[in-house]
Design a protein around this nucleic acid. Structure first.
Lengths: 211, 211
DNA sequence: GTCGTGATGTTTACATCGTAAACAAACGCC
DNA sequence: GGCGTTTGTTTACGATGTAAACATCACGAC
């Protein structure tokens, strides 16, 4: 959990901090290619070309391609969390939970590659998964956010009582199941049909809040 | 849905039929490597070595590495369906549905790479933008099997009435969500803890049958 | 028999990939 | 100034997917 793969030799005590403008430029290039053309297109040479440096330059900032992809993923998580927080603008607990679900779906459908990178494959050194024992998802900011929204509803009597963490995980798994099957093209639906399907499934299982 | 990528030049009218002993040998080699070491280890050269042929031999039977992986995946689906059918041995509708859930989980946990290959890949957006409209999962034998188990329960009054297809999809998504998060190492749990978690989540959401 | 003909397999070759190694310029600090 | 550290480049190597050309072998027609 503590080791960043980014080299950031001039970063201060906290290596998770900015690694300098050059690292930024390289991550930006990698992200641009990734979003446009997918993970396979993110080759070190392509990134270097886009960042206007030589192919080996990226290795001064990232141990390996995998470490670079991890940085790309972290940007995705940042954006995801920011998006979730928009749901706080809704007026009441139930509305906030519903908005959270909508924000989740919107992010996944607008950033399918980011979503897949973040949640549908195992990446070494993932912030969500230490791959070893112990709590990881329980601590993830986005998961805590969902737990809070559910606790809020429970406190307002809008939810059957129970362990909010368990309910949050259940809801997360449910939405993630739908989303990931859709993104993996196992459902053969277009986006509007999929959104309608989500609405029906989630309202069936969770009443109104989940949809 | 009808075009096989396998070349099978001596296969009869149905190209999905056996492509000859050599194709078998190559798929077997690919599967062995895949199960042991993961998709990345399935290189054409490694497969050829294992199948005791020259590196280019596989191209006589499969268009590309991707087509070979697809054949590997189909083997996985066959095994998966066979496993599901064991659940029919249970005595009553509720028991059969519960056994189906258990079979699903068991298959995924015993064959994690197969499961990931079958259900956690191919993200919308890139070359796979074919996204051929129309029913696909609705026709899949394994999905029909789940719908049948749910219909059985509904007929016996063990399930709230409703569209069995929708309920089946909801249950599928829920279990798949849990499984895929676990396999992608987002939960940071070991297997026994994960099984216990599934039990709690699914029994919370679906009463007894799902667990 | 001989002679195509097509299925099957091999060898060779190439572009592209991740990345190790050696080298060079730019910077801070004395 | 000199010198070590940081940052970048060039070059090179082994692995990969696969195209192209060539070799083998079975088999039906003559």
């Amino acid at each position: 959990m503590s080791d960043r793969r980014e080299r950031s030799p001039l970063g201060g005590a906290d290596p998770a901090k900015r690694g300098g403008g050059a690292s930024e430029k390289i991550i930006d290039a990698a992200r641009a290619i990734f979003v446009e053309a997918g993970e396979a297109a993110v080759t070190m040479r392509a990134v270097a070309t886009r960042a206007e440096v030589s192919p080996m330059a990226a290795y001064r900032h990232f141990e390996s391609r995998e470490a670079l992809m991890q940085a790309v993923m972290e940007r995705g998580h940042d954006a995801f969390l920011r998006r979730m927080h928009h749901a706080l603008a809704a007026p009441g607990p139930a509305e906030r939970l519903a908005a959270t679900g909508r924000a989740y779906l919107d992010f996944a459908l607008e950033n399918p590659r980011d979503y897949a990178l973040m949640f549908m494959q195992s990446v070494a050194g993932d912030p969500c998964a230490t791959s070893a024992q112990g709590p990881a998802w329980r601590d993830a900011a986005t998961f805590r956010f969902l737990v809070d929204r559910i606790s809020e509803c429970a406190a307002a009597g809008l939810m059957p009582p129970g362990d909010p963490e368990l309910q949050a995980l259940s809801l997360w798994a449910h939405i993630h199941g739908l989303v990931s099957l859709y993104l993996a093209q196992k459902l053969a639906l277009d986006e509007p049909a999929f959104r309608a399907l989500c609405d029906r499934v989630l309202s069936m299982a969770w009443g109104r809040p989940g949809a």
